[in-house]
Nucleic acid binder design. Structure first.
Lengths: 139, 139
DNA sequence: ACTGAATTTAGAATCATTCTAAGTTTAGTC
DNA sequence: GACTAAACTTAGAATGATTCTAAATTCAGT
């Protein structure tokens, strides 16, 4: 007999399916000092699991994003970045040095309600990017 | 002697360098019923200038964005879109049908000042995208 | 017409990402 | 402990958007 009861099968959320590969990808993201591209994640994971395939890193990133263990961040152009910060937040992108900092814009929940009222559009997700110059790059 | 005086050379802004190709690209964007990808622009421009090269469309788009005649819009993933609307504005993207609508989030100027005060970051540009369901796709 | 700069062209190259098909691992069953 | 189907990984090809390159063309100013 299965270790899971009927109640578990029907009402419990699916537990994380963390294979060795997915675990390694997740660890790299969680230990990173900044947001990483798939390429950077691949390079770092390869130090732990030398045989891992590029496609596996992409599969793992898709899975981990799906189950909410990491956040995929699109910054206008260039490669997608992966972020261990799971809270809703925004990004400051320096156009000089490229550094990406987290920033939390207040009251966006209220804005979503406002949009629903005035336009009928139901926004589920917000991507807010500020492009400019970081303190270091202003001299 | 040049038709431009010294004063013009030193203080007047450079006039638009609108070649036939750039003009055609600009016209296509201005006459479009929606935001277009480079591919869509290429297809439409080709009906007027059958010989135009793909790279020329990209060059024209870079030039026209640079001089502020069109706006490049990045919507998270997928190809860049080009927009005739030159005013600062935001986008509502339907995750079901993909339709993109313009929307203007109020008071972002105030937010930029706030960010400058609290973080020292000087934001010059904001990209704000709302992803969700448009009225049609909510049934 | 002459000259240098800017532009266009065609196609190759690049980069991020997705796809494919075959092999491997895993969980659950006899 | 072997059997099976499902899930996962692998290697490499394929795709799609964009940029690069080098040669040919056009243009502005003399």
């Amino acid at each position: 007999m299965s270790a899971r009861t009927r109640a578990e099968r029907t009402t419990m959320p699916t537990p994380l399916q963390l294979t060795r590969q997915r675990e390694a990808v997740l660890a790299v993201i969680q230990e990173a000092e900044k947001h990483l591209t798939a390429q950077e994640i691949y390079d770092r994971v390869r130090q732990r699991l030398p045989g891992i395939a590029y496609a596996t890193v992409y599969n793992a990133l898709a899975y981990l994003s799906q189950v909410g263990q990491v956040q995929a961040v699109h910054l206008g152009s260039g490669a997608t970045l992966y972020d261990r910060n799971l809270a809703r937040h925004d990004h400051l992108v320096c156009r000089q040095c490229g550094k990406v900092s987290d920033y939390c814009f207040p009251d966006l929940d209220r804005a979503l309600e406002e949009i629903a009222h005035t336009t009928g559009f139901r926004a589920q997700k917000v991507e807010l990017i500020f492009i400019g110059l970081c303190p270091d790059c202003q001299r």
